[in-house]
Write a protein that binds this DNA or RNA. Sequence first.
DNA 1: TAATCAGCTTTTTTT
DNA 2: AAGCTGATTA
Length: 732
Amino acid sequence: MNTVESLNPEQKKAVIADNENMLVLAGAGSGKTSVLTHRTAWLVNEQGVPPMNILAVTFTNKAAKEMRSRVESLLDISTHGMWIGTFHGIAHRLLRRHAGEIGLDPQFKILDQDDQLQIVKKIVKDLNIDDKIYPPRTIRAFIGARKDEGVRADSLHSSDSRYDYTYIKAFQAYETQLRVDKALDFADLLLYVHDLFDQNEGVRRSYQDRFKVILVDEFQDTNKIQYDWLKLLVTTQNSIMAVGDDDQSIYGWRGAKVENIFKFQKEYAPVSVIKLEQNYRSTQTILDAANAVIANNEERMGKNLWSDGDKGEPIAIYEAVSERDEAAYVSTKIADKLKMGVSADQVAILYRSNAQSRALEEALITQKVSYRIYGGVRYFERAEIKDVLAYLRLIAMPEDNLAFERIINVPTRGIGLRTIDKIREYARDSHLSLWASAEDMVEAKLLPAKALNTIKTFIVMINGMKSLIQPLGLADKIKVVLEGSGLLEFHGSSKHEKAQQKLENMQELVNAAQNFNPPVDVVEEQEMLQEFLAFAVLESGESQADENTPAVQLMTLHSAKGLEFPHVYMVGLEEGLFPTSRSVDMEEKLSEERRLCYVGITRAMKALTISYATSRFQYGESSFPMKSRFLNEIPKEHTQSVRMGNTKPKTFGFGVSPTDFLNKRAKAIASHTSPIGSQYKQGDIVEHAKFGMGVFLGNEGDGEDARLHVDFKGGYGAKVLVAKYARLTKIS
DNA sequence: TAATCAGCTTTTTTT
DNA sequence: AAGCTGATTA
């Protein structure tokens, strides 16, 4: 199939370009993925480029999957030989192949963030670092930031005055520990591939030869090390096409460098630059709003989205009195839409931080709206899942100290800290693994009788499972481990609140293994396990919820990038939350927040609703935020204030437009002083005969007919009361 | 050694 | 609100 005809001139230009370096600046919804997939198809179908000579790199697994399936539908032949994957996925694949060439143990394991943190914690303890001054999280962030910019511990000198010596020391210890554990973190995957290409000319050449065409998606999100290793692959004989949008750069905090786009233009010259500005996704109103917001950023490459579609509906703005009110509004509106025949999966709720999902979930449940949540603790990051995987690891590789430490006393089997400390000590002195040390110590009876017995039982159990498991397939291996480890029984008989959920999660792992499809051709069972373990880290949370039933999607703005929905609700547009309080006094960070807002707005195809609350319960206390500056950046002619109950504004006979009226009211409520005549101030604690204590949020009008907004404690929530009947008592 | 509890801190985004 | 740490009790 060839559908180049369906493309616009700019898209077409990018698709049928010669073997040249190209930068495609693709605005939101401008058909970026179409360009990437059609280019691939055109190369294969028309130019006869074999799929195996193409490398396509994305950032998320979702994007990689989508790309493969869309390419497949355009191709006459199989995409099997084509490399499509995330930076990390491809790096992993390369390293498994070439571990030997750069002195890596081919059995290396991959650490997720939690594993990293555990290691840092251990180091903090070992080095007697004060964790009040140097919290492990901060140290981890330091290490991550250095590695993302390609700086290794051994290239940092203790005299380097840029950094506190303690960080450097911890960094060095961390790197040593990773080598001992034969473990790589996410950044290592990229770093080692860089080293591989940099140091091994033969390997570099072979991939330069192989990849005639390199396609990179979301180029604005590349960090230094990713940029560098791509560069090592490009020669005068092949070409690279970078697709990105500087306005959608939202991962600066993770080391992404928008500047890479500028650098690309210089370092890969001559580069043909193609701008895709025609948007096929959203109404003109939505685009105008997005353009207006992003125009407040400096240092843009400059793009303006346009569409030849309809103007569409104005953007609805809802001012809530609390996060519960906000959630109630959003969920009732969604329920209404579903009743009108909108399918649930056409609707998304987007928020700045995962913590915001809670109130929304509760409200959706009340409305009986089925929803699916993305993010939060991902499936393979759950403690109980990692426990099971640790058993598998220890059984397969007894020298895996990380696995040993994780499960030696999970479920609790009477092996306490004292015993574990002794094993650690023995291991350190004898340079053995913890497992081997435990074996030795049992042999030589180096422990008190009780500890000796429990350890012995543990060893026998692991060894027993080992021989049992050997011939079994992955799913059956897991079944044996669930039973044999005692994990099933432990959680099954636990009266802990979450025990049932944990049990189900663990059972689900058997299914996950059953359905697991290794990305490379695997022959040995051992290799299968290794691929599964890597998959669990690299693709920790993909598609666990069943995707068959349509559901409203809840996710952060970050994870919404690249997606689109006919109906979008963007909630929590409040100063301090979005933009976050940590960004407001730094221009750079504020710009990134604004780009995030731009991403959010441009997810919407037909209808966009934005909401904010004048009071929000967070971090265990009430706050009274002002509405987000981003809201004020949207031209008023594109918005319409809405209220609970009716989307259409009421008519007012005062010669004042409804919008104006509501804006005035919004101001009155958002400001900390109420209009003259009210006896309460925002934030006052008041008491009501029936509802008890509450926080006064604001009022509409004054005198005895004034409507008072109060957020009551004790499960009553936000209420609107008429002043003359309310009989509130002011407490403070 | 294990489980429970009180008091403490900590809050963004994720391959 | 929720998770973590340290102390206390069984």
